[in-house]
Amino acid sequence: MNKFLLGLVLLTLHATTSQATGEKYLSSETKLGLFIRSEFDDLAPEEVKSYEENYAAIVNKLKEKKATAKSDAMFLKHVFYTVHRKMLGEYEQYVTFSEIFKKEKKYDCVTGTALYALILDELGIDYQVHETDYHVYLVAYAGGKVYLFESTDALAGFAWDPKEIAERRAFVNQESIRINTELAMTGLASNEKSTQGATYIDNVVNLRQLAGLHYYNQALKQFNNNAHREAYKMIIIAQGIYPSQRIKNASSFMFSAAFED
C-alpha cells in the first residue's frame, strides 16, 4: 500500500462520509431513513419501528417544550442536553447511526450531529452542519443569534457566546491545518499542492450530504479492516450522494486497493 493510501486512512473524521446505488431505506416515516441504512445494518422491521417510536417520543416532548419556552437560548440549551442525556451515550469512531438506539447508545461526530440536525429540522430551527477535515459539528440560528452544538462534548457542547463560538470554530480549523501540515511534511499527504500545507476543509453540508459522509466513514472503517471491496462499495455510494473532492480521491484509491489483484 503506498504512502498516500496510508495518509488517506489517517485523514478521517474524528471526535473530533456515479449516482448512488444500492440505497434502501429502512425507515420511511421520518428522515431517519437517510441514516438507518440496509447497507449498514441488518435490522428487523420491528427494530426499525421501535427506533422510530423512540425518536418520535423525544421530538414530541421537545415540541411541547418549545411552545412554552421563555427564550430561544434556554430552549436550545434544553434541546442539546436533553438529547445528549437521553440518546447519546458512548463515543466510538465509525459507528453506524442505528447504534444510537441500542443499549450503549454509541455515536460519533457524524451520527451525533446527524441526530441533532434531524431533530432541529423537526422543530423548525434553522441550522448549518459544518464538515471539516477531521470533525463535524452544527450551528443553530434563532432570534438573530448563533448557537454551537458540539455533539462530542457532553458537558460543554452547547455554546451561545459569539466570542467562544468563534474561538472554538477557529480551533477546529487550526487543528486541521496543523495535522495536514504534519502529514505533508512526513510525505503522507497528497502530492497535489492544493491539499498540502496550511489548507483545511470547512464546508456547509445538507442532510443528504451528511448521509454521504456517513457512508464515507463506513468506507474508511471497512478499509481499515482490510475489507477493500466492501469499502469500495460504500465509497461509491458516498460519492453518488456527495461527490466532494476528498470522497472522489478516496474512491479512486479504494478502487485500486479493491481490484489490485
Rank of each mutant, 00 (worst) to 15 (best):
L123D: 09
Y232S: 11
T132E: 01
S71R: 12
K248L: 13
D72A: 12
F253C: 03
N180Y: 08
G187Y: 15
S190F: 02
L188R: 09
E90F: 13
S176L: 00
G124M: 04
T17I: 07
L138H: 07
H84R: 11
E64N: 15
D108F: 06
G7E: 04
E64R: 14
T30E: 03
Y91T: 10
Y127Q: 03
Y141Q: 03
F4A: 08
L148K: 10
F171V: 00
E39I: 09
N54D: 06
Y107P: 09
S251N: 04
K65R: 14
S194N: 11
A166S: 12
S190H: 02
D108Q: 02
G187W: 13
N217T: 15
I179S: 02
Y51S: 03
K66Y: 15
Y55W: 09
T82A: 00
L148M: 11
T12H: 10
I179F: 06
F40K: 13
L148I: 08
K102L: 14
I235Y: 15
T199K: 04
G89E: 00
T181E: 08
A250D: 06
L183C: 05
E90G: 07
V139N: 05
A15C: 07
N226G: 01
V59W: 04
K65F: 02
P45W: 01
K65W: 00
Y215E: 05
G112H: 13
A114P: 12
V110I: 15
L115Y: 12
L6G: 13
A189P: 10
S50E: 07
G33L: 02
L13P: 03
F158S: 02
I125C: 05
T12R: 15
E52K: 11
G143P: 15
G212S: 14
A211V: 11
I36Y: 01
E99V: 15
N60G: 06
F171L: 13
A154D: 05
Y25S: 15
V95S: 01
L120E: 01
T195C: 10
R85K: 13
F35V: 00
I237N: 01
A44P: 07
F40N: 14
H78K: 14
I165A: 09
V204P: 09
V205P: 13
G212E: 02
V139Y: 08
I241P: 02
Y242D: 04
A67K: 13
L183F: 10
D153N: 15
L188N: 08
H228M: 14
E29Q: 14
Q128I: 04
K221D: 14
Y94S: 03
L62N: 02
H214E: 01
T152S: 11
T21F: 06
T199A: 05
I58P: 08
